[in-house]
Nucleic acid binder design. Sequence first.
DNA 1: GTCTATAGAAGGATAGAC
DNA 2: GTCTATCCTTCTATAGAC
Lengths: 203, 203
Amino acid sequence: MSENDKLTEEKIFDAATDVFVEKGLDGARMQDIADHAGINKALLHYYFRTKDKLFSAVFEMIAKKIFKKFAPVFDDDLNLEAKIRFFFREHISFLQANPRLPGFLLNEVNRNPARIKKLLNNIDFNNIWLQLYEQHKNELQKYNISQETLPQIMISMAAMSVFPFAARGILEGVLDKMGLDFNEYMEERKTFAADFVINALKK
Amino acid sequence: MSENDKLTEEKIFDAATDVFVEKGLDGARMQDIADHAGINKALLHYYFRTKDKLFSAVFEMIAKKIFKKFAPVFDDDLNLEAKIRFFFREHISFLQANPRLPGFLLNEVNRNPARIKKLLNNIDFNNIWLQLYEQHKNELQKYNISQETLPQIMISMAAMSVFPFAARGILEGVLDKMGLDFNEYMEERKTFAADFVINALKK
DNA sequence: GTCTATAGAAGGATAGAC
DNA sequence: GTCTATCCTTCTATAGAC
């Protein structure tokens, strides 16, 4: 594969990423992707054969990118409170830079759950909760939080961070009518969400 | 409009609701809707003229249905804690019966935010926060919660209820690998979420 | 009001020249 | 590896008979 090939394939992949995230699998047009990449339709098929294969490549890249953002929660050596603050600060910042990714991922997974299955198979979730519980055993026992509750807490944290972006179309409309700006709102949310969760755990 | 007309139009509308929620606007096919309704394609156009008009009718119905479910939060005469418990119990129960609605609504709004704009225009949000704040002034002041914080709290509650359904494709995969069932998880969540929010507010 | 048949356009994919 | 031209299928929408 020459240096030039690499460039063309990348151009196509980047253009496809833009168009698929913007329009979804069903709404995206191969012609539109070709135009964005500055090449012709036939080349798309030369490099990726079918629309579905091109989409799968894009989808997998995005899914990995998003999951990777959750990783620091499991291996950092911060205490529980610092870790919660770290998570909301970093995660919301990432989504501010990529506001359309949550909606894209959630929608495409619901349309075709099989796509995410093989990615999840590489992960041992039982072990993740165990590891997390051991890391913060002292604090969690002090607050009377069992290991079984961790999934509920984690989903709640993901929800508080991701949902405003997934619901952006509605939330922006609501904030607009109150004279508030979405990005300022999300800036505030970094600390609000952290305080909220920490208070909830402390009781 | 005869009694028979009403029936056909309703059959079409119901079939369209099923197919649009399942496949989305771009993925849905008029032929598929006709098959579900047990009539032929031409009749769809006779009653609704275009695919887009048919979709708009379905979308508007669903959006109203969902927003209506939030209404009791604003006019019930329960105290704050009881209202929070009421909300999660009722709202999650509604979504358990309609698990695909959140993903559908969020996705279609993000694809075309204009669709929701006119529905939001009928609502005076500033007044809603004011009303809510007055209703629970005593409790909110005791917990040192300002009126400006209400939108963050409300979005957090919506997130905790809605997000697991919007992310169902992923969450179900995760729970599966842990030997847990989605519906049992959501049953637990009705009380977990209420406790979580109440604790967070009380500090 | 309901059907069959078909127009007309659009989209994914490929053949073949360079 | 890249392009133009085109095939073939699918889809929305309409015409016209009953």
